[in-house]
Simulated scan of single mutants.
Amino acid sequence: MPTRPFRFGVSMLATGSRSAWQAKARQAEDLGYDVLQVPDHMGMPAPFPALVSAADATTTLRLGTLVLNAGFYRPALLARDIADTDQLTDGRLEVGLGAGYAEAEFRTAELPYPAPAERVDHLAHTVAELHRLFATPDQVPAVRQSPAPPLLVAGIGDRVLRLAAREADIVGFPVMSLRTPPGGDPQQVLAERVDHVRAEAGARFGHLELNLFVSTVALTGPSAGAPDLTAARRLAPDLTEDQIRRLPNVLAGSPDEIAETLHRYRETYGLTYFSVLEPHLTDFAKVITRLR
Rank of each mutant, 00 (worst) to 15 (best):
E241R: 07
F205A: 01
P114V: 12
H263F: 03
Y73K: 08
R7F: 05
H196I: 00
A50Y: 08
L251Q: 10
L163T: 06
A231Y: 10
V127N: 11
D228P: 12
K24Y: 01
V67F: 04
M176F: 07
G184I: 04
R264C: 05
P248Y: 12
L281H: 09
A154F: 03
Q27S: 10
L190G: 06
Y101Q: 07
V67G: 05
P112L: 12
A142T: 14
L93W: 04
A50W: 08
E103D: 13
V175K: 05
A154H: 01
L123A: 11
A23D: 15
P255A: 02
L31N: 09
S177V: 07
V95M: 00
H122D: 11
G9D: 10
V276G: 05
V140M: 11
V143G: 12
G9T: 10
L212S: 09
R7Y: 04
M44R: 14
I156W: 08
E278V: 02
V35R: 13
L68D: 09
L212Q: 15
L78K: 11
I170E: 01
F213C: 03
A128L: 07
L190Q: 06
A231I: 00
E241N: 12
L61K: 08
R92P: 00
S11I: 12
R107D: 04
V143T: 15
F205G: 01
A148T: 08
A191K: 13
H207C: 00
P137V: 14
V120C: 11
L61I: 08
R233G: 05
S17I: 08
M176G: 01
L239S: 08
V38Y: 00
A231L: 09
T240D: 06
V250I: 03
L130V: 13
Q37Y: 04
F8R: 10
L219Q: 07
S17M: 09
N69Y: 09
M1C: 12
T65G: 13
D121I: 05
S19A: 15
T230I: 02
L61V: 11
L66F: 12
D86L: 12
G100S: 06
A117G: 14
E105C: 01
M1E: 10
A154N: 02
H196Q: 14
I170G: 03
G270S: 04
P182Q: 06
G172W: 01
A124S: 15
E105A: 02
P174S: 02
Q145W: 10
D56M: 14
Y269N: 05
P5F: 08
S53K: 09
F48A: 11
P141G: 11
